[in-house]
């Protein structure tokens, strides 16, 4: 297959990927004038652009993004590291796996948003319940992916570790974690993505800053353009975070080839 042929198809793919969003954007802008949806409910993209520009100009958007990102980073670190440690412990110890895994799976069934009233009662309306709420979101993907990664470390790796007489720390850092790293990294990606989504939920309750709060304020003050601006910003930042992690993942695991769909 010639290089120009592949290049042609790559461009075609990129164009196709642009066409749908572009059509949606046109439909979105025309929805008001065509009386499909009231402009009071669905802010047209051009109005949204002006609102976003105003929010950036006043510094309000940047301030709220910084506050939300701080919450995400702390919540993610707490939740993902707890999940990572528990995943390793359950992966290494069959006894702890039998003891803890059913419990973790049961508690996971509780819808995440159901935690918030309890967290407020237990930890007041300050930063702590918000961090814990985000941490809960980050915890599950990390614990399960770490556990699965460790469980899936090939048997011959363990045999090799025995040959080299790797014990405890060296066994963990030289064999187990490297062997489970692709799955752990998937956990990190999912955890970070969910942390970013959970921050909005965390900021719905008793909050006076952050992107989630900005959206709630917009709803209560019937300034729907603020709600839509929040949605756009959340989507954009989530996309950027995921993109950065994808690049890191590709560099770290360049040796790994995976099937990406399509017919060869």
């Amino acid at each position: 297959m010639s290089k120009s042929f592949i290049k042609h198809f790559q461009w075609k793919d990129k164009l196709l990927a642009l066409i749908v969003p572009l059509l949606l954007l046109i439909l979105w802008q025309s929805a008001g004038p065509l009386q499909l949806v009231s402009e009071l409910i669905l802010t047209p993209p051009l109005t949204l652009f002006h609102t976003l520009a105003d929010l950036v100009g006043s510094g309000e958007l940047t301030d709220n993004i910084i506050v939300s990102l701080q919450r995400v980073v702390i919540g993610f670190l707490v939740g993902a590291s707890s999940g990572f440690i528990l995943g390793i412990v359950m992966g290494l110890s069959p006894f702890l796996k039998r003891t803890l895994l059913p419990l973790v799976k049961s508690v996971q069934q509780v819808p995440e948003y159901a935690w918030m009233p309890l967290l407020i009662i237990l930890f007041s309306v300050g930063e702590l319940p918000k961090i814990i709420f985000i941490a809960i979101g980050a915890f599950y993907p990390m614990v399960f992916n770490t556990f699965q990664g460790i469980s899936g470390v090939p048997k011959n790796y363990h045999e090799l570790a025995n040959v080299y007489n790797y014990k405890n720390y060296r066994y963990l850092t030289k064999v187990i974690i490297p062997g489970a790293l692709p799955s752990i990294f998937t956990g990190i990606r999912l955890s970070l993505g969910l942390s970013w989504m959970f921050v909005v939920g965390a900021e719905l309750f008793g909050c006076d800053s952050g992107i989630g709060y900005m959206m709630i304020w917009g709803r209560q003050m019937f300034q729907i353009d603020l709600v839509m601006s929040g949605l756009v910003v959340i989507g954009a930042i989530g996309f950027v975070l995921n993109f950065i992690l994808e690049i890191i993942e590709k560099r770290l695991f360049s040796w790994r080839r995976s099937f990406e769909g399509g017919i060869a």
Partner: peptide, 9 residues
């Protein structure tokens, strides 16, 4: 009410 009862506000 929950926030007041628990001293959060």
């Amino acid at each position: 009410s929950a926030a007041l009862a628990t001293g959060s506000v």
